[in-house]
Amino acid sequence: MSHKQIYYSDKYDDEEFEYRHVMLPKDIAKLVPKTHLMSESEWRNLGVQQSQGWVHYMIHEPEPHILLFRRPLPKKPKK
């Protein structure tokens, strides 16, 4: 599979999560399941490479070739 064609967005966040999206080329996108969110082993098997802790959290129906990921931000110590 062509890992060079996978595009990784910059990371962005809110108060709770860090987010990123990953755009897959058409040949890989056709392998994305339409019935469920992928486990880490499933998206890694497609060639997506990112650190541990990312969760495929949403399917964007109009653009199924874009995978939406998030992971919890580290808890800030209370002052």
Rank of each mutant, 00 (worst) to 15 (best):
K30N: 09
R44Q: 07
K11W: 09
P64Y: 05
H60T: 07
V32G: 02
R44W: 04
P25Q: 04
Y8F: 10
K79S: 12
Y7P: 00
I28M: 14
Y57H: 06
G53K: 07
H3G: 15
L73R: 11
K34M: 08
L73N: 05
S39Q: 10
K79D: 14
Y7I: 15
Q52N: 14
M1F: 15
K78C: 12
I6M: 11
Y57R: 01
F69N: 04
H3Q: 15
D13Y: 15
K30W: 05
L31M: 10
S2T: 15
K11E: 10
G53D: 13
E16K: 13
K78H: 14
L73G: 04
E40L: 04
K78P: 14
E18T: 08
E18N: 02
H21A: 10
Q5T: 15
Y7R: 14
K4F: 07
M1P: 09
Y12E: 03
S39M: 06
G53F: 05
E16M: 13
E63P: 06
H36S: 05
E16R: 12
S41V: 12
G47K: 00
K4V: 08
P33F: 00
E40F: 06
W43G: 02
D13K: 14
V48C: 04
K75E: 12
P74K: 15
V55H: 06
H21G: 04
P64F: 01
S41W: 09
Q5S: 15
D13E: 11
M1C: 12
S39G: 07
L73I: 12
P25C: 05
P62C: 14
S39V: 08
V32S: 04
V55G: 01
P74R: 13
L31I: 00
M38Y: 04
V55S: 08
L67A: 01
K11M: 12
M38E: 00
P33H: 02
E63K: 07
R70I: 02
R44A: 01
K26T: 11
V32P: 00
V22G: 04
Q5R: 15
R44N: 06
K78N: 10
N45M: 11
R71I: 06
F17M: 00
P25I: 00
Q5L: 15
S2D: 15
L67H: 04
F17D: 07
Q52T: 14
S41H: 13
E42M: 07
S2I: 11
M1D: 15
K78Q: 13
Y8D: 08
Y8H: 08
M1K: 14
L24T: 02
R20P: 05
R70F: 00
K75D: 13
I66F: 05
H65C: 07
K11N: 02
D14N: 04
R44C: 03
D13R: 14
K30E: 09
D10H: 10
R71W: 04
I59V: 11
Q49L: 06
D27S: 11
V55K: 10
P77C: 13
W43D: 01
H3W: 11
Q50N: 03
E18G: 01
L24N: 02
E16F: 13
